[in-house]
């Protein structure tokens, strides 16, 4: 079995169709703040315990590209695209995650 260990960059840059932001400076914001259609890279995850585990199990780890797909009709939960699938999470769960947008 081949040993592969390059954990520096956490994930493949799939979905890297992120349109270049008109504002040049990338800022770190809460995942919740992403607008529909806006792409970002996950910066940090502060959730621990069950929540932290569930979030990571679904592939939300630093370095991953996400794109906001919008919000439910009552503005919560939110939906986003990452790694080729769509994930939803509640706004208060998204608060554990910061992204660079």
């Amino acid at each position: 079995m081949t040993e592969i260990n390059e954990p520096k960059e956490a994930s493949l840059e799939k979905n890297s169709v992120a349109e270049p932001s008109p504002k040049a400076k990338p800022k770190v914001i809460s995942l919740r703040k992403l607008k529909r259609g806006q792409s970002a890279i996950i910066n940090s995850i502060s959730a621990e315990g069950e929540m932290g585990r569930r979030i990571r199990d679904m592939g939300l780890i630093p370095g991953v590209h996400v794109k906001c797909m919008g919000h439910a009709p009552l503005k919560d939960p939110m939906a986003m695209r990452l790694m080729g699938f769509t994930l939803t999470l509640r706004n208060n769960e998204a608060d554990y995650i910061t992204v660079t947008a």
Binding site: N5, E6, P7, A10, L12, I45, G52, R56, D57, P62
Partner: peptide
């Protein structure tokens, strides 16, 4: 950070390096 988070990051790291190593092309 804490061990569980690090372990998850490294697992995903292992996977993505594997995929970039000629497995997946988009």
């Amino acid at each position: 950070t804490y061990p569980e988070a690090v372990i998850a990051d490294y697992r995903y790291g292992w996977i993505s390096s594997l995929l970039r190593n000629g497995v997946l092309e988009i």
